[in-house]
């Protein structure tokens, strides 16, 4: 598969702080990526770099084979929906949809209208009079209806209630099945999107600490609960992420291969770890080291 985005050793420094620090990865055509990480880890900066809105201090970025900065041919295939998007004071909801129609070549007006109806957005209302949730919904509508071959959603759910968030996930998945594209979803609500995400990119303090297919990851990380000695024997060849003690029992979260048969014999219980727990464990460890 051809990479849609290819990033090599990219950094973004602000005076003494490195918001993005020597990052390398690729995004392939047609896939849903989860860009995960804590507040201030560098997720938004990374997406701004990929969309030519920020200037990298080092490294090379290729989007559809070219540098995205000031590159109209590249950028018109890219949509970047962010929580902090600003709109002109005089713009109404319908003006924003017009902007989407004029600027994105693959824009689907009928789809946009149906999404507006789904999210109950008032077309004639000035954007600055929208509630927080409606503002997020407007961003989601633009991002989905743009059908941009590369679409970024940067925490698009702020203020959205659970029903509307589910609506977003459902519409995204249905439209993605019909019109495959590369979607990057940056979010803190990891459990909600864990079924959606096909590939995980985890960023911590400006560095990519995990770049793995979601399915591979799910099988890789397990929690073992049992007597300390038995647990220790089982995890010798794994990467220990976390350990806690519950009375006589030890509970360890590890990444690697744990033989299920031997665990059963030793009276050690194996449990899968959710994507969210996994992210918490890995980022917590990165923060210590």
């Amino acid at each position: 598969m051809t990479p849609v985005v290819s990033v090599q050793d990219v950094s973004k420094r602000y005076r003494s702080v490195a918001a993005v620090d020597g990052v390398s990865f690729e995004l392939l055509r047609n896939g849903i990526y989860g860009l995960l990480g804590r507040n201030g880890a560098g997720k938004t900066t990374l997406m701004q770099l990929l969309t030519g809105q920020q200037f990298a201090t080092g490294g090379t970025i290729r989007v559809f084979g070219a540098d995205p900065v000031e590159n109209s041919q590249v950028l018109k295939q890219v949509a970047f929906v962010k929580e902090s998007q600003r709109y002109p004071d005089t713009f109404r909801v319908r003006n924003v949809l017009l902007a989407g129609r004029l600027l994105f070549p693959d824009w689907d007006e009928a789809f946009a209208r149906s999404l507006v109806a789904d999210f109950d957005l008032p077309l004639a209302r000035p954007v600055k009079k929208l509630s927080r949730g409606m503002l997020s919904a407007l961003g989601v509508v633009v991002g989905l209806a743009s059908r941009a071959p590369l679409t970024f959603f940067d925490e698009p759910y702020l203020g959205l209630d659970a029903t509307s968030r589910q609506l977003f996930y459902d519409r995204l998945l249905a439209d993605y099945a019909e019109f495959p594209r590369t979607v990057v979803l940056s979010t803190h609500l990891i459990d909600e999107v864990s079924d959606l995400i096909e590939h995980v990119l985890l960023i911590e303090r400006g560095r990519i600490v995990l770049d793995e297919a979601a399915d591979t990851l799910r099988g890789q990380v397990v929690t073992l609960t049992g007597p300390a000695s038995a647990v220790d024997q089982l995890i010798v060849n794994t990467d220990e992420l976390h350990r806690e003690h519950l009375g006589p029992l030890t509970r360890a979260t590890v990444r690697g291969d744990v033989p299920a048969g031997r665990a059963r014999e030793a009276g050690v219980q194996l449990e899968p770890v959710s994507l969210q727990q996994l992210v918490v464990r890995i980022t917590a460890r990165e923060a210590v080291s």
């Binding site: 809105q53 590159n71 902007a99």
Partner: peptide
């Protein structure tokens, strides 16, 4: 002043280049 202060962040957010 308003044309730049308000429209510039909006336009760039919708994948417009600075030159455009």
């Amino acid at each position: 002043a308003v044309a730049v202060a308000q429209q510039f962040p909006f336009a760039l957010g919708l994948s417009v280049t600075r030159r455009e």
